[in-house]
Design a protein around this nucleic acid. Structure first.
Length: 824
RNA sequence: GCGGAUGUGGCGGAAUUGGCAGACGCGCUAGACUUAGGAUCUAGUAUCAACCGAUGUGGGGGUUCGACUCCCUUCAUCCGCACCA
């Protein structure tokens, strides 16, 4: 774009056209000054030993990456910032802390590339983030800052790990793991999808390794039950429930014909047992090896197993359009109810990792089994009435009547399930079982930049915990952060570090060289903020008792399964061993929607649609940035960024600023504005609480439009407006508060209250409908009765003409709302 | 496949939970102040008809004096889980 004039010229002109003797709204100068004041006065520091009621607002602490703060962070933090500032005004002792989730791969990778220490890189990134957050003017208590990579912090991460270990919830197992070829690390099931690493996109392959697991499955039931005691958004709760994936069913033993061996399956539908016409086991199932002597087609089976192992999970699940499998010749199973011999197959549509790794196939009532039966010409038996099993599996079987099922015939599905389980248990053939889809948490990484796992491997004593008084077990200085090709951590290259003696017997021993995953440090960080300098415990009992639970936790939807479940798991464990006073860590959890680029696409460097908060602050100021991000749309939904939208919010700020020109020094409300002000207090108060920030700001804009229509306002009007605006735009409102001579500072002001009776207009516009269609409006006092309203309405020719010559059948008069006349 | 959500102007989005659809903002149009406008102010802005009026919240049907809102049905988009037995 070509500018006809130089920008200096423009600025001069711009100032010249500002009316009155008022100064120009200089966001930069104002915001710096107030931020300095807040920092110097420690305005937002939580109170120790306070008698006040507490409010603990938590936002997900950021990973201090090299690219700096994202507008997504701003959306996530500003929402609870508004709540936290409002709570302060309401008289709460507020804790609104921030910290750094600073261990992790990107920093380590950057350190590898540049040959610098991850510590140095982390510190630099934290400095950049800190400066950016302060420029936005957040009311964080910086005194309570934490950093997961600080030994004084990860000492306690290690300590909690040791408690888990001592209670049998951390164990090591040789297992097939998902290994990322790019990052050279073992990934948790949660860290990749479609066979590709979440972080680097490289292929993920199966590898057998020693792996640390945390037994989160032991807490599956508690994690589910705890959801009843907390206030999470419904969709968050749902995702957690899906992730845990509880299913109730039965385990059933099938005898192998002629052998003293059984094959155990898990099924959610024991009622369909009479319809089980074959069995399928996972390719890795141990039965193959156990009975290899009897199997007559081992070659075919081994080649199928090999093929399955080569397939990535993605191929196995996504690309498998057609069922494959091999019949195991030489062995057969016996259906425990029909006593018929049925064949056993191996097929990769059955997973070793769920249930028992074996299923009874009921082709009549399961789509996958039906498909398989078709392909291998296996018998299909209908056991629930209602479909046509020769054409497709009848799966709509939550209810229905049992057929071809011996003693179950005629029963409804629910009764049949109960009766089958009863029968199985009586006969010793199986029992009721509950299964969870959630897997145990793979807890080690072969990386440098993580918490060392405080375990010593002793040839005599086995795995021995590092004594608690020796914590923190600090990361050693390292020359090279390159992971080894075998997937060993860089720590495995430092004998001076890993060579040690057994704390128990003194024998020469070796330290664990793996480190913890990034999820570790964030699984308990909310317990540390309010006592972040404590070196006797992760936090004192008194402070835990006062501050827990977190009253309100806000963050992204991407963290509501893994991070939220992991941290709830740790917290519940700490509760069980008496270390925290509440069962659940978070009383309330909400989540913000994404901010998309101008083009409606997700922001990404490669698309070039990333908005840098710094640029917005430079041009319009932090208050405009905050206001626009809160105004951008429905808080829970994603919304595209709009430069013009941001500009509109700057116009709003300018209009707020210029209000000073039309103010008179009277502390009462203007009579013409009183109702509007009371209404706005009510609406903004409730909208903030419900995270309807967009409509709260709209209400403030409406009020300011009302102000301008009056062309004169009182200081009382203005003060209330500033109080309401303060949580969203604290700098400009604080500045004007002082400028107009209001008492003290807005930081110490109360939240305004409203009078319910003054939120209602005395005179209202009521719509008058004829047969449900609006034909006019009447202006009447709010308490006008029906007769009076009718006679006023009939004075209007338009209403009158619609009634004329017709018979009034019915009149609906809802006081204060509507008047509908039904004619024929 | 299963589960969940959402469909409203040119755009982001409102609608007291069954009571005047389109608040508020953006954009756009016209005017004012102007050497200039990308500042500011004023007026207008769902669609068709342009006088009364008619239509309109993805489509179709229903309940009701009255439906964006409730019920049935259908289509589309997005998200989550995913051969989970």
């Amino acid at each position: 774009m070509i500018r006809p004039m130089g920008s200096d010229f423009f600025v001069v002109k711009y100032n010249r056209y500002l009316g009155g003797n008022m100064s120009h709204y200089n966001h930069d100068e104002i915001e710096k000054r107030w931020q300095k004041r807040w920092e110097e006065n420690e305005t937002f520091r939580m109170e120790e030993n306070s008698q006040k009621e507490k409010f603990y607002g938590l936002v997900e602490f950021p990973y201090p990456s090299g690219v700096g703060l994202h507008v997504g962070h701003v959306r996530a933090y500003t929402s609870l910032e508004v709540i936290a500032r409002k709570r302060r005004m309401e008289g709460y002792n507020v804790l609104f802390p921030i910290g750094w989730d600073a261990f992790g791969l990107p920093t380590e990778n950057y350190a590898i590339q540049t040959g610098r220490h991850p510590r140095q890189v982390t510190d630099e990134n934290i400095a950049v983030f800190t400066e950016q957050l302060k420029r936005i003017g957040y009311a964080f208590d910086w005194d309570k800052e934490i950093d997961t990579t600080d030994p004084n912090y990860y000492k306690w991460t290690q300590w909690i790990f040791l408690q888990l270990f001592k209670h049998g919830l951390a164990f090591r197992d040789r297992s097939y793991v998902n290994f990322c070829n790019g990052c050279k690390v073992v990934l948790a099931n949660e860290d990749f999808r479609d066979g590709h690493c979440d972080r680097c996109g490289s292929e993920v392959v199966q590898l057998e390794k020693d792996v640390w697991f945390l037994k989160i499955r032991n807490y599956a039931e508690k994690l589910l039950a705890g959801l009843d005691d907390v206030d999470y958004l419904p969709r968050i709760r749902l995702e957690q429930e899906n992730w845990i994936g509880k299913s109730v069913g039965a385990e059933v033993d099938f005898n192998i014909a002629g052998q003293n061996q059984t094959l155990r399956v898990f099924t959610t539908r024991p009622d369909t047992l009479f319809g089980a016409t074959f069995m399928v086991i996972a390719p890795e199932h141990p039965l193959i090896e156990n009975l290899s002597d009897l199997i007559t087609n081992m070659e075919a089976i081994i080649s199928y197993q090999e093929a399955a192992k080569r397939k990535t999970e993605f191929e196995r699940v996504q690309l498998a359009k057609e069922k494959t499998g091999v019949c195991i010749d030489g062995i057969r199973a016996i259906n425990p109810l029909t006593l018929e011999e049925i064949p056993i197959f191996i097929a990769d549509y059955v997973m070793m990792g769920y249930g028992t790794g074996a299923i009874m196939a009921v082709p009549g009532h399961d789509g996958r089994d039906w498909e398989f039966a078709q392909k291998f010409s296996l018998p299909i038996i209908e056991v629930i009435k209602g479909g046509d099993v020769t054409k497709e599996a009848y799966t709509n079987t939550d209810s229905g009547q049992m057929v071809n099922s011996g003693f179950l015939n005629g029963l409804q599905v629910k009764e049949a399930i109960a009766k089958t389980i009863e029968h199985l248990e009586k006969e010793g053939l199986g029992q009721k079982t509950i299964n969870y889809k959630m897997k145990d948490w793979a807890f080690n990484r072969q990386r440098y930049w993580g918490e060392p796992i405080p375990i010593v491997h002793c040839p005599v004593c086995g795995m021995v915990p590092v004594p608690e008084e020796d914590l923190p077990l600090e990361l050693p200085k390292v020359e090279s952060y390159e992971p080894t090709d075998t997937g060993e951590s860089p720590l495995a290259n430092i004998p001076e570090w890993y060579e040690t003696t057994c704390p128990q017997c003194g024998h020469a021993a070796k330290r664990e060289t793996d480190t913890m995953p990034q999820w570790a440090g964030s699984s308990w960080y909310f317990l540390r903020y309010f006592d972040n300098k404590n070196d006797q415990a992760f936090a004192s009992k008194e402070k835990l008792k006062y501050w827990l639970p977190v009253d309100w936790y806000n963050g992204g939807m991407e963290h509501v399964t893994r991070h939220l479940l992991y941290s709830r798991f740790w917290h519940q464990f700490l509760y069980d061993i008496g270390c925290v006073p509440t069962k659940e860590p978070y009383a309330k959890r909400t989540a913000q929607g994404l901010i998309l680029g101008n083009d409606g696409e997700k922001m990404s460097k490669s698309k070039g649609n990333v908005v840098n908060p710094n640029d917005i602050i430079d041009e319009y100021g932090a208050d405009t940035l905050r206001t626009y991000i809160m105004f951008i749309g429905d808080y829970e939904k994603s919304a595209p960024w709009s430069d013009n939208g941001a500009k509109g919010c700057r116009r709003f700020m300018d209009r707020v600023w210029k209000l000073q020109d039309m103010m008179v020094s009277d502390d009462a409300y203007s009579p013409n504005l009183e109702t509007a002000i009371h209404k706005t207090i009510k609406k903004v108060s409730s909208d903030y609480e419900e995270m309807k920030f967009n409509t709260a700001i709209a209400a403030l804009m409406t009020l300011i439009n009302d102000f301008y229509k009056e062309s004169q306002i009182t200081r009382g009007d203005f003060k209330t407006f500033l109080q309401l605006l303060y949580p969203v735009a604290p700098h400009i409102s604080s500045e004007i508060w002082v400028e107009i001579g209001a008492d003290g500072h807005l930081d110490n002001a109360d939240w305004p209250s409203y009078d319910e009776s003054k939120t209602v207009d005395n005179v209202i516009q009521m719509a008058v409908q004829i047969n449900g269609k609006v034909r006019g409006t009447i202006e009447i006092p709010v308490d006008t009765d029906q007769q009076t309203a009718k006679s006023i309405a009939m004075e209007q020719s338009n209403i009158c003409s619609h009634v004329e010559g017709k018979k009034i059948v019915k009149e609906i008069f809802i006081p204060g709302k509507i008047f509908n006349i039904v004619v024929k």
